[in-house]
């Protein structure tokens, strides 16, 4: 089966390798200036920030200088969806479209074993490719991670264990979509839609709650948060702990300005303070393991559903 799988999916597998190479090259070229600046400004001695005089300025300068590169790197989140579209969805749909399932399923290998071994082998290839992608992304983002941490989505989504898990899940959803719809293009659309819906749903709804969030009270109205954390909420509360609306905050500031008092010290005198809810950077690997578990579980579920469909559906 290994040869058959390789032969049937050769174009996609070669394309995956090509894409990886391209990403790695782009990463190498774009990261060299970042690393050079990092060393030039001796940013490593600024971690955690503001340990030596002038650090805050250096860090904020570094951030703004390379902000656009870091923003572009966010697009790496699209790549784990591709195995679902181009390998998973056609796996069954193309056989149905061309009628070749009648050939494939009437050899001596029962159709569920045929599907299982193909899915298994392609999953291995996909997971390996995604793991390489994650390694490249982690190397690329290392300077940013040192400064900004990696628990917030910019780092978390493209690094570590979750990337192979996302790719495996995308592949499995693609296979299931092909089993359901039996047409390649609709299956690709369904695979993409389902992948991003689940992926963003988990990120927005579940990930903030994997472990209880921490709270930190900051005196004064400046952010005062350590930049390496994933800040979930940043609220201004009064002395009793009620949240202060922005309208009320604005009125207070205007009032202070009329009275020619420094707004900062005025609000402090009212007993107002900031409460920051966050997940600390130190939880990165724990969160990665949890999210990987979720996606591997969902992927196995999708593969199981596809197997049941293929076993049961009249052809």
């Amino acid at each position: 089966m290994a040869w058959v799988t390789w032969r049937q999916h050769r174009p996609q597998l070669l394309m995956t390798a090509g894409l990886l190479l391209l990403v790695a090259l782009a990463a190498l070229v774009t990261d060299l200036p970042v690393r050079a600046a990092y060393h030039r400004h001796a940013l490593s001695s600024c971690l955690p920030s503001a340990t030596r005089p002038g650090c805050e300025l250096i860090v904020s300068h570094f951030r703004s200088e390379f902000a656009s590169r870091a923003a572009v790197a966010r697009y790496l989140i699209v790549l784990p969806a591709l195995p679902g579209l181009f390998i998973g969805a056609p796996l069954l749909a193309r056989e149905f479209e061309h009628g070749t399932f009648r050939l494939a399923w009437t050899q001596s290998i029962p159709r569920y074993r045929w599907l299982l071994s193909k899915t298994f082998l392609l999953s291995l290839a996909t997971i390996a490719a995604a793991a390489l992608l994650a390694v490249v992304a982690m190397w690329w983002r290392q300077p940013f991670d040192n400064v900004n941490g990696r628990i917030s989505p910019a780092g978390f989504d493209v690094e570590g264990l979750v990337v192979p898990a996302y790719a495996f899940f995308a592949l499995a959803v693609g296979v299931l979509a092909g089993a359901l719809l039996r047409r390649t293009i609709p299956a690709m659309s369904l695979a993409a839609g389902a992948f991003f819906a689940v992926r963003l749903g988990v990120e927005k709804l579940l990930r903030p709650h994997y472990l209880g969030a921490l709270h930190r009270t900051a005196n004064g109205l400046t952010q005062g948060s350590r930049a390496r954390d994933w800040v979930l909420q940043n609220r201004l509360v009064d002395a009793v702990g009620h949240q202060i609306t922005t309208a009320r905050e604005d009125r207070a500031i205007v009032h202070a300005q009329h009275a020619t008092v420094d707004p900062q010290s005025y609000l402090l005198s009212l007993g107002w303070k900031r409460v920051i809810t966050y997940q600390p950077d130190s939880r990165f690997w724990t969160f990665q393991a949890i999210e990987m578990g979720i996606f591997v579980f969902l992927a196995l579920l999708a593969v199981a559903a596809a197997l049941v469909l293929v076993r049961r559906t009249p052809a």
Binding site: M1, W3, V4, R7, Q8, H98, G99, T100, R102, L103, A104, Q107, S108, I109, W114
Partner: peptide
């Protein structure tokens, strides 16, 4: 139905791999 992108030799290899 056959795999159109395969060569004749590859189709035979497919059958060889799919049958004991």
């Amino acid at each position: 139905p056959l795999y159109r992108s395969f060569t004749v030799g590859e189709m035979l290899a497919f059958a060889r791999a799919s049958n004991n």
